[in-house]
Amino acid sequence: MSPYRGEVLVMAGEVLVAGDVPVAVREAVTGVVAALEDAFNRKDAEALGAQFGERASWTNAAGRRLDGRAAITAFSGPAMREFLKDSYARYEVVKLLAVADGVVAVNVAQTPTDAAGRPVEGPHGRALYVVARQADGWKIVAGQNNAVDAQSAA
């Protein structure tokens, strides 16, 4: 039995939308994900951090929890210059779930790519972002990234 019985389920392109997520909110939230992808692929820690709320809580694929935009930005700079320097990815929003007014849960599939955006072998990611309307725009306020092997990602 579906937990969404009686709720609105819509396919918006390839994205499953559960609940009332107006088009403008969909665009804003997917814009956050696109900006996060762009910042990661450019290795721009400031731009990446700017996608998070001031009081965000983030758990990375290695299981390390980072609390607050400043901590996320501070960790991301060295990580992207060092062990992630040759890592690139494509982020695909696969589901939006209306949680409350101004709060959307976002499931994201991450595919490893080369610097030109072509898929490559390597661990995939499955992330859950909670994106909320903040004073400075839509921001990730909580989330977790999970590394998965390519077979599990299929």
Rank of each mutant, 00 (worst) to 15 (best):
S2Y: 04
S2K: 06
P3W: 13
R5V: 12
G6R: 04
V8E: 15
V8L: 12
L9C: 08
V10P: 01
M11C: 06
A12S: 13
A12L: 10
A12H: 10
G13L: 12
G13F: 09
V15D: 07
V17W: 04
V17N: 02
G19C: 04
G19K: 07
D20M: 05
V25A: 01
E27D: 13
A28I: 01
A28Y: 02
A28T: 02
T30Q: 12
V33P: 07
V33L: 09
A34K: 09
A35Q: 14
L36P: 05
D38G: 14
A39M: 07
F40V: 11
F40M: 10
K43T: 10
D44I: 07
A47Q: 12
A50W: 10
Q51D: 09
G53P: 01
G53T: 03
R55D: 05
A56H: 02
A56V: 02
S57M: 11
S57R: 09
T59Y: 06
T59F: 04
T59A: 13
N60Y: 04
A62P: 10
R64A: 05
R65G: 05
L66E: 02
L66N: 02
L66D: 02
G68Y: 00
A70K: 08
A74N: 05
A74Y: 02
S76Y: 12
G77T: 06
P78V: 10
A79M: 15
M80H: 08
F83L: 07
F83H: 14
F83Y: 14
L84D: 12
L84M: 15
S87V: 15
Y88D: 03
Y88Q: 04
Y88V: 01
Y91D: 13
Y91W: 14
Y91E: 09
E92P: 05
V93G: 08
L97M: 14
A100N: 02
V104F: 02
V106Y: 04
T111M: 00
T113A: 00
D114N: 03
A115C: 04
A115H: 05
G117D: 05
P119T: 01
V120Y: 00
V120G: 00
G122Y: 00
P123G: 14
P123Y: 05
H124S: 06
R126Q: 14
R126V: 14
R126S: 14
A127S: 13
A127H: 09
Y129K: 09
Y129P: 12
R133T: 09
A135E: 12
G137L: 03
W138Q: 01
W138S: 00
I140F: 01
I140R: 03
V141F: 02
A142V: 02
A142Q: 11
A142D: 07
Q144M: 09
N145P: 06
A147R: 10
V148F: 08
V148L: 13
D149T: 13
A150Y: 01
S152Y: 12
A153L: 06
A154R: 14
